[in-house]
Design a protein around this nucleic acid. Structure first.
Lengths: 162, 162
DNA sequence: GTTGAAAAGAGCATACA
DNA sequence: TGTATGCTCTTTTCAAC
C-alpha cells in the first residue's frame, strides 16, 4: 500500500503541491492534471496514508523574523545513539531541521536559528551536552527548495515560459 | 513592512502552520491563538507579503516514491558565481534543495534524489559541468523538520502531553 | 477498485462597523 | 480587529466504468 508506483496523476499532484501546498486547491490541481477534485482529494489521502507525503511546512525566512543568526552545522554522533540523540535535538531551542547521514563521521546536518549569539551559544551548549560533536558550523546565506523537477510537471498543463 | 517584529499572534500562526500548513484552517488557527479567522487570514497575507513566509511545501519521503537514492552533497563553487550556479542547479534533475553557505570552502549543501545510480551519476555529471566541485557525498537516512519550538507554541492552546 | 457528478456542509474573502 | 454575507472549496454519497 505504501511503496506502490506513482502514476502520472500522483506525480502531477505532487508537483503542484510542491509549488504551493497551501493555496493549491484540489479543484485547481484537478484541472491541471485532468481529473476531478474528488479524485485529487482521494489521491492526496492515499499519498498521506502511504507515507509518501509526511507533512506540509511553510518555508520561513528567519532573517525576516528577527532570527539574525541562521547556521548549518555538520556534526558527529555515535551511530548507535543517532536516533535517540536526534529525538532529543528536537527539543533544543532553535533547531529547525536535522538530516541524518549514513556515515560514521559527520553523520548529522543540523539547521539552527537564533536571535543573537547568546541564543546560539546556548543551543550549542545543549547540543554538546547531548553528545553532539560539532565538526563545522557555517552561516547560512539562503536555502532554496524546488519541486522535484522531473516529478510531474510533464503531467500538468503548466506553461514553462521561463 | 518586512522585518517588523512579530507579535504573539504571528508567532502562534507560524507555529501552527509549521505543524500542518495545508490542513490547518484559518478558523482552527484563530481558535488556537484567540483571534478571528479573518484576522488570521490578514496576518498570513502580511507574513507572505513581508517575505517571512516564502512558500508552502510538502515533505516527501522519496524512498516511498521509487527514488531509492537520496543524497546530501557538500560542494564548493566560486563565490562570485554562487548565485548563478544555484540558479542553474534548479534545472538539474533530482536536485530538490540547495543551501548556500557563507564560506569559501564547501559553500553549498545540495539534496539530491534519483531512482537509480545512473540517474545520480547523470545529475552529478551535470553539476560538475556547471562548475560544482563536490567535496563529499553521503547517503541520507532521514530528514526531520519541526516547528521552531520556541516560535509560538506558548501562544497557542495546544496541549503538550508528550 | 477507481473515477466523476451532485448535494450538503465548512471555510474563505470582502465589505463594513 | 471582529462580524456578516456571498462565494468557493471540500467532503460525502452514489452511480458508472
Amino acid at each position: 500500500m505504501a511503496s506502490e508506483e506513482l502514476d502520472s496523476v500522483d506525480k502531477g499532484i505532487l508537483y503542484l503541491l510542491q509549488e504551493d501546498a497551501r493555496n493549491n486547491t484540489t479543484n485547481a490541481i484537478g484541472e491541471q492534471v485532468g481529473v476531478s477534485s474528488s479524485t485529487v482529494a482521494n489521491r492526496i489521502t492515499k499519498l498521506e496514508e502511504g507515507g509518501v507525503i509526511t507533512g506540509y511546512h511553510p518555508t520561513i525566512d528567519y532573517e525576516q523574523t528577527g532570527m539574525g543568526h541562521h547556521l548549518l552545522i555538520i556534526a558527529t554522533v555515535p551511530i548507535d545513539d543517532q536516533e535517540e540523540i536526534v529525538d532529543d535535538l528536537v527539543h533544543v531551542p532553535g533547531v529547525v531541521s536535522v538530516s541524518e547521514l549514513l556515515t560514521n563521521n559527520a553523520n548529522l546536518s543540523i539547521e539552527l536559528v537564533g536571535q543573537n549569539k547568546q541564543e546560539i551559544e546556548k543551543s550549542i551548549g545543549e547540543m554538546s551536552g547531548l553528545g553532539v560533536d560539532i565538526e563545522r558550523m557555517d552561516l547560512l546565506k539562503r536555502i532554496r527548495a524546488f519541486p522535484y523537477n522531473h516529478f510531474g510537471k510533464e503531467f500538468t498543463n503548466e506553461d514553462d515560459t521561463g
